[in-house]
């Protein structure tokens, strides 16, 4: 019934797809539900609303973004399918990290600012629901071992509240697969990423100040002394995955393990990241669906996609095509669909776009259009239906990106 009520088309100004050169919401009034929430301003890393420290770096090209996105998606799919989990177990036993372990953070474009230490030092951190361990670059860090960043390096020696995690304790043991031996009785950590990027250093604790009124005492994070790869420019990463070492896990006592975020539509607007605020399932305005888990990949938040409609018409895709579940990931750019579902979506979308000239494919995006010369664009609506009937009717920005249908197949049939 909901699908039948969905709009058949969405019409927007062609200019709305442009990123915008000025921040339209430089200091929004953050939503605040109750006294147990901490709300952080969230922005696109490359845009006029980004912290000045992060915005001067050039954005990666579309081609680079899509290539990095494909590596991340392939990694996630391997982990969820079980192959990645086997690699993780093997890596622990061998005390080495295979190059394929981890993910590519080149597509993590959304940042928040928090302060670390006493006195607090501002850190621009990429938010990632697809990983757990948080880290920042720390002094000492030789130029050959750390990438350049706009903020001064965090110096644990100048923080009165910093403590290195000792070896042998529960906190060090909690690192699990991220553990990397001991040095001078300090607990070491390492995170290696699918493209060969990595961070390595000392596991430590310090005060993480989220807002003027919200701080996490004894926050455990990686103090990175050696980084390489596609990490340039950021101060660190905020892991929001499901494992206990993530920010969400560490603050479960204070915030109930609940969090929410809103990714801005374009770089010239802002969103937010809220820790806490657990509300009833009947919260107004929300379409709610069950949170699922994957035993082989416990980091991920998984929902069950059950159908897709285009132009108000449900696609003819067998339910079994969606049976594997859907990872909700802030670090993947383009939604990946099972091949049968993507083929049906693409066909229906193309049928609704015959008024526009097609354009050359762009990397993994194979359904592109030349929209130059149009003042408005009318797209077939796209709605994603989740278990329990929750329906996400996408806005134009969720349908078309880089001039292309912003979906891709998640692999080959039977893969």
């Amino acid at each position: 019934a909901r699908a039948a009520e969905a709009p058949r088309y969405v019409t927007v100004s062609a200019a709305s797809f442009k990123p915008g050169s000025t921040c339209r919401d430089p200091d929004p009034v953050a939503p605040r539900r109750n006294g147990t929430s901490a709300v952080l301003r969230l922005t696109h890393r490359h845009g006029p609303c980004a912290p000045a420290r992060a915005s001067s770096l050039a954005a990666p090209s579309v081609a680079d973004t899509l290539r990095a996105d494909q590596r991340r998606a392939e990694y996630i799919l391997r982990r969820v399918s079980g192959a990645g989990a086997q690699q993780l177990v093997g890596s622990k036993a061998a005390a080495t990290v295979p190059a394929s372990w981890g993910y590519d953070i080149g597509t993590l474009n959304y940042v928040v600012t928090a302060s670390l230490g006493t006195p607090g030092v501002a850190q621009t951190l990429e938010v990632d629901t697809g990983s757990d361990l948080s880290w920042v670059q720390c002094k000492p860090c030789a130029a050959s071992s750390c990438y350049s960043q706009k903020d001064p390096l965090f110096d644990p020696a100048r923080s009165s509240s910093y403590a290195a995690v000792p070896c042998g304790g529960s906190a060090c043991a909690g690192l699990g697969l991220y553990a990397s031996g001991c040095s001078a009785a300090q607990c070491g950590y390492v995170v290696s990423y699918g493209d060969g990027s990595n961070t390595r250093g000392v596991y430590g604790s310090d005060t993480l100040t989220l807002t003027a009124t919200d701080a996490v005492q004894g926050f455990l994070f990686g103090c990175g002394h050696a980084q390489s790869g596609l990490l340039t420019g950021i101060d660190g990463l905020l892991g929001l995955g499901r494992l206990p070492v993530s920010l969400v896990g560490q603050t479960a006592g204070a915030y109930g393990g609940a969090f929410s975020y809103c990714l801005p539509t374009k770089p010239s607007t802002t969103g937010y990241l809220t820790l806490g605020g657990a509300a009833s399932a009947a919260a107004p305005g929300f379409a709610t669906t069950q949170l699922l888990t994957s035993p082989g990949a416990p980091t991920y938040y998984i929902v069950m996609l059950t159908g897709i409609s285009v132009g108000g018409q449900a696609l003819s895709v067998p339910a079994s095509a969606f049976a594997g579940g859907t990872v909700v990931d802030t670090g993947t750019v383009v939604t990946r669909l099972p091949p049968a579902a993507y083929a049906a979506l693409r066909s229906a979308f193309r049928s609704g776009m015959t008024a526009y000239p097609s354009a050359a494919p762009n990397g993994i995006l194979d359904t592109c259009y030349d929209l130059s010369g149009y003042s408005t664009v009318t797209l077939p609506s796209v709605a994603l239906v989740l278990s329990s009937g929750a329906t996400l009717t996408l806005g134009a920005d969720g349908i078309l990106s880089f001039g292309c249908l912003a979906f891709a197949a998640s692999g080959s049939d039977g893969g």
Partner: peptide
């Protein structure tokens, strides 16, 4: 397996509370 990427999450508030995932459109 599918992945819901950040292009499709934009402007939704996504709320995760341990039992469920909620999506609120037009939140930012």
């Amino acid at each position: 397996m599918a992945i819901l990427g950040n292009v499709q999450q934009r402007s939704f508030e996504v709320r995760i509370d341990g039992d469920s995932v909620g999506f609120r459109p037009g939140a930012c």
